[in-house]
Write a protein that binds this DNA or RNA. Structure first.
Lengths: 326, 326
DNA sequence: GTGAAAGCGCTAACAG
DNA sequence: CTGTTAGCGCTTTCAC
């Protein structure tokens, strides 16, 4: 900025005024400064500006890692931000954040740099943060923070009913982590639908999968190695469902002929596996867009429902079929 | 930081030393300060820190918009950053950047905030930028900047040969924008493969699609409305290929029975359309990871090839088939 | 081993 | 209308 000021023969304060469109600058000065700015390709440093002004027009999206789930939200947020005049800053430690990443990233960015934040699947939710914050699918469920999530319970019911409707009775549930709200709700939905159909749940068929390939591996093997293996598996997210498909194939089982598998999330990757995964879709892009709109309204001080829950939908692809007659 | 200093009964300078692990702090002071930091959940502001220190341990990824292409790169970069100790900051204006977004975002973030940047599909490439910069698939082709891209020419040859091998002869090419390097190379590859097979190119079947649905719409209609329409279309990216499929269906043509369509990129979305798209895969995640590694090496001053070109691969799905006997 | 002071690039008051 | 001045929260000499 000093460069620009010197070249234009004015003070940095004047340049600042031009850059920020403040009143009190002569038309001639303005155009001269603007010319120099264009010529030099000057752009104010976000860091320095925000340090002083506490308004940046930048919204943060804080994620533990850029993976299929968070990037879908990002697409939605990106589409929604266009109209608002804000810019988007997505921050991630690349998976190295460890526990408490959400709080650390937030304090690192808030107060300076961003006017508000969307935090994706936070474990620790803090109501007070300095800037407005919206949580997407917090692991503790809707609490003090404004929240956007999908209807995990209803989705799990849909998944289970789909399997039941196909004729399955020996259905396994490969859950998430029991301490997470979404995982709990999906198990509840599963049990609810089973009970409603009058099909008893074999407790040995209910396992903790942990939402990730590595953690789902052992329980999946245990499930499929049984004397009387399940004819269908409902996995609480796509990542673990995909892993079930892989394990089944490695064991010589054909999907869906020998085993039906249904997932949850509908990340794009679920369509890429062989066979393409039947799953329960969360409207991820829509959730990202909704979270962003909610955040903007919060910043603008508009009244809004503090909790948005979006519906899920069954996406039938090729990993589910009626059980084979025995 | 002043809070922490006051509570611990030391100066902010000392707190700073503790935070940054500098030498010259008594063990007792260190542990006391560390305790207060943990208790208060203090985390240094990125903006302020970077303003002063010019080393942030944060790498930037600058994109025009978060869409399927850039988010795939993001996933790769995120996976690769884990080992490096850096954190990732992805910045986007949400599509409102306009021309020259790459330069503006870069000067906004560089010098402060980030130690280096990966710029995704920049149009304007500037060799000198203040911080190390790596370009992914720059629209002008490899120039002064270190670059990561895929082999567009070879990929286009693969696509064309696939169609030729299926028996197609009347093959249309729906190109990108002629001013973009990747688009030009894909057309070259198409012509090269046609010539090698001794099949003359009907110039009326070569159209400019512009890489986007909106820009591809009119040329696609023109192509399919011909008296003698093509039996196959090679679209220069998945987005336009998907649009060709949609237009064909809206015209009552069945894909692939009446018309084969092949795309380029292999974004996850290409598998989600009906029928799933046959396409040429760019190893997008790998490209993102490679760009990040190249950037880190650049920052560390390591010698590295300044241009990495990754191979493409044919992904056969269901949008291509032999032409119908007439 | 610790703190005082200067200053990173910018904006906001205020004086001229 | 324009420039001077005082910080924003932090790191970094450099005295003590």
């Amino acid at each position: 900025m000093a460069d620009v000021a010197r070249t234009a023969g004015v003070s940095v304060a004047t340049v600042s005024k031009v850059v920020n469109g403040r009143y009190g600058v002569a038309a001639s000065t303005l155009s001269r400064v603007q010319e120099v700015i264009d010529e030099l390709g000057y752009e104010a440093s976000l860091g320095a500006r925000s340090l002083r002004s506490h308004r940046t027009n930048v919204l943060g999206i804080l994620v533990a890692e850029f993976e299929p789930y968070s990037t879908e939200l990002l697409k939605g947020a990106s589409a929604a931000v266009g109209a608002t005049g804000y810019e988007l800053l997505a921050y991630s430690g690349g998976g190295t954040g460890g526990v408490g990443w959400e709080r650390r990233y937030l304090s690192r960015l808030s107060g300076t740099l961003i006017d508000g934040a969307v935090i994706v699947t936070p474990t620790v939710v803090e109501a007070h943060a300095g800037v407005p914050v919206v949580a997407v699918d917090p692991h503790t469920g809707p609490s003090g923070l404004p929240t956007v999530d999908a209807d995990s319970f209803a989705g799990a019911v849909q998944a289970t009913e789909h399997l039941l409707g196909l004729g399955h009775r020996r259905i396994a549930f490969l859950g998430g982590r029991p301490d997470l709200e979404s995982a709990r709700l999906r198990e509840d939905g599963f049990r609810h639908a089973m009970a409603a159909a009058g099909v008893p749940v074999d407790e040995d068929l209910v396992r903790v999968g942990g939402y990730r390939s590595e953690t789902a591996d052992q329980p999946t093997h245990a499930l499929l190695a049984r004397d009387e293996p399940p004819t269908a598996v409902f996995a609480a997210n796509d990542l673990s469902a995909i892993h079930v498909v892989e394990v089944a194939r490695s064991l010589g089982l054909r999907v869906p002929d020998d085993l039906s598998v249904i997932g949850f999330d509908n990340v794009p990757e679920s369509a890429l596996v062989t066979p393409p995964l039947t799953t329960i879709a969360q409207p991820l892009q829509q959730m990202g867009a909704e979270a962003l709109r909610l955040l903007v309204d919060l910043i603008d001080g508009k009244e809004r429902p503090v909790h948005v829950r979006l519906p899920t939908e069954l996406v039938e692809r090729s990993s589910t079929a009626p059980p084979r007659p025995r």
